[in-house]
Simulated scan of single mutants.
Amino acid sequence: MAGLARIRHVKLPVSDLARSVAWYCDLLELRLAGEFREEGELRGAQLMHPSGFGVALREREYCPGQPDLAGFDVFALEVDSVDDLHAFAARADELDYTRGEVFDRGEQGAFLDLVDPDNTVVRLLANNPFHADRFLGVDADGKGGFTLYDQPTLV
């Protein structure tokens, strides 16, 4: 659709706003760009990256349905190289934050999962094989293996 440029931000429910702001700022180099108060009480924060994307955080108890995203990768961020994934892994270790291993699948891309204080997964990708100009399907076998296919089954 004409006029769309990019995702501006994602919004995540958190159990401790200050702790989550610190995690996202420390590890992902976001900066606090805004706060949201309701009836004088701090309920949310807007964090921004210099590249223009943002992560909004809202105290879970004030979210409709109080969603819990533990273990789910709500969004992924792209980095320039596998070396960058290793640098983020080292930074997470330095800060004593939970993370997965760097998985490098060659031309099928590489990723690293970072786990925020609420156990929501932030996935970092390098050499991402998905592009807007071609289709790529992935069939995972549940044991860490996968095959790729080039014809969509949804259409």
Rank of each mutant, 00 (worst) to 15 (best):
A70C: 07
L4P: 05
G144P: 03
G3I: 15
L42K: 09
A140F: 06
T120G: 03
Y149H: 12
Y62E: 10
D118Y: 03
Q151K: 01
F53N: 01
A5L: 11
S81F: 14
A70Q: 10
A22T: 13
D116I: 12
V55D: 02
G40A: 13
A45Q: 09
E101N: 05
R8Q: 05
Q108L: 11
A126V: 07
P64N: 14
L17C: 08
A89K: 13
V121M: 00
A45E: 13
W23C: 02
I7E: 08
D133P: 04
D26A: 09
M48F: 11
D68K: 01
V14N: 03
V10H: 14
A76T: 09
D80A: 14
E61C: 10
V121W: 02
S15T: 15
D96R: 14
V74C: 04
V155M: 02
Q66I: 11
A90C: 10
R58T: 13
L148Y: 10
A110T: 09
D150E: 11
D80N: 10
F135T: 14
C63E: 15
V79C: 05
V115W: 02
L85A: 12
P50Q: 03
I7T: 14
D141H: 00
A56T: 03
A126L: 06
L148H: 07
D113H: 08
P152I: 00
E29C: 14
L30I: 12
D16R: 02
R6V: 12
R105A: 09
D73W: 11
A140S: 05
F36E: 10
Y149E: 01
D104M: 00
L95Y: 04
L77S: 06
S20F: 07
S81D: 04
D68R: 04
D26N: 10
F72L: 12
G40K: 07
Y97D: 05
R99G: 01
T153N: 06
V115L: 03
A87I: 14
H49L: 06
G144S: 05
C63M: 14
G65I: 14
G142Y: 02
C63R: 08
V155A: 06
L47K: 01
L27F: 09
P152E: 06
E94L: 15
E107Y: 11
P67Y: 08
D113Q: 07
V55Y: 02
V122K: 00
L32Y: 05
